[in-house]
Amino acid sequence: MKGMTIIVKTITDFVAAFIVVFGAYIVLYGHLTPGGGFAGGVIIACAFILLMLAHGREVAFARLPERAAHIMDSSGALAFLIIGWLGVTGGFFFLNVFGRGDMFRLLSSGMILPLNIAIAFKVGSSLFLVFAALAMFRRRSFRAMIEEELS
């Protein structure tokens, strides 16, 4: 049987979606409340790592395919750079050229919100990828060890 017991699997199915929603809240309100792209990205990565620990690698990769995680990782870093270059249109690198909006509202403070989202994509997907690689490596090396023992 792959993964952990049925109790852990059931509770993981209930909880994982809420963890992703909480991480998205931390990211989106990073410029108004404590939080931001780094913390929110790590929280979202934790949700998928929880799925991987409870169900095994296949279920987690069915929710977030490895190729999509690679693309999100690279495009997050690229989006950060592109938003920085957009500032050049107004004068210099990383100038806040977007409209700043009303204070204390969600859609305010110009480029901070898109930068937070880009960082969250980058941090979350890259940590998920690293953990997936570590978990996969352990399985492979263990299988090699067992085959060595048997032969």
Partner: peptide, 13 residues
Amino acid sequence: THAANIVTSVILD
């Protein structure tokens, strides 16, 4: 920056 969280405004602006 119109960002209420000063730490975020320092990091990202």
